[in-house]
């Protein structure tokens, strides 16, 4: 149906991604780290901001990245791979990883932009490797082990029988 394969995340992928995100949160002195796919779906979260509305955050970050990527193309750039929003208390650092994933780091004055940039670079390389494996697997996968392969029409109908 689409040019890019479905993103399928297994337990072990999730663990690896959370481990890198938690390490980054610690090393960068950040409040939180989120990995979001470019379509606005939250992949993982780490840090102290777990109570916030991550669904809204993910959708808005993806919209923001989509709009700035569109803007980049208008002025002849392929992309703006790094975005930084400075607030009164909290700041947001956004980077693209493995083309399809957005890494969001939220930090305050316990950290600095320089430190975040440094740590993000290192974590980004590790995350790229993990996501490359996930995407490679998705491309070679024929969808046979999708949880939806075995569902019946009745299962779908039951969802709507209110």
């Amino acid at each position: 149906m689409s040019l890019t394969p479905q993103l399928v995340l297994f337990e072990e992928d999730h663990k690896k991604l959370v481990a890198v995100s938690e390490r980054l949160t610690h090393d960068a002195n950040a409040k939180a780290v989120f990995l979001i796919d470019r379509n606005g779906q939250l992949v993982t979260e780490a840090g102290e901001l777990k109570g916030i509305d991550t669904t809204s955050l993910s959708s808005l970050v993806a919209g923001n990245v989509a709009a700035t990527t569109g803007l980049a193309k208008v002025i002849g750039e392929p992309d703006f791979p790094i975005h930084f929003h400075q607030g009164e208390r909290d700041n947001v650092h956004i980077t693209l990883v493995a083309q399809r994933i957005i890494m969001v780091v939220i930090f305050d004055d316990r950290s600095s932009l320089g430190l975040v940039r440094l740590r993000v670079k290192k974590a980004g390389q590790k995350l790229s490797q993990i996501f490359d494996e996930i995407f490679k697997r998705a491309e070679s996968d024929d969808g046979a082990d999708s949880p939806f392969a075995e569902i019946s029409e009745d299962d779908i109908d039951n969802l709507f029988s209110d």
Binding site: L9, D37, N39, Q41
Partner: peptide, 15 residues
């Protein structure tokens, strides 16, 4: 392109 998350046991679709 749906996102299937086995860890959270979720399927996410965009309409």
């Amino acid at each position: 392109m749906a996102f299937i998350n086995y860890s959270a046991r979720e399927i996410n679709c965009k309409l």
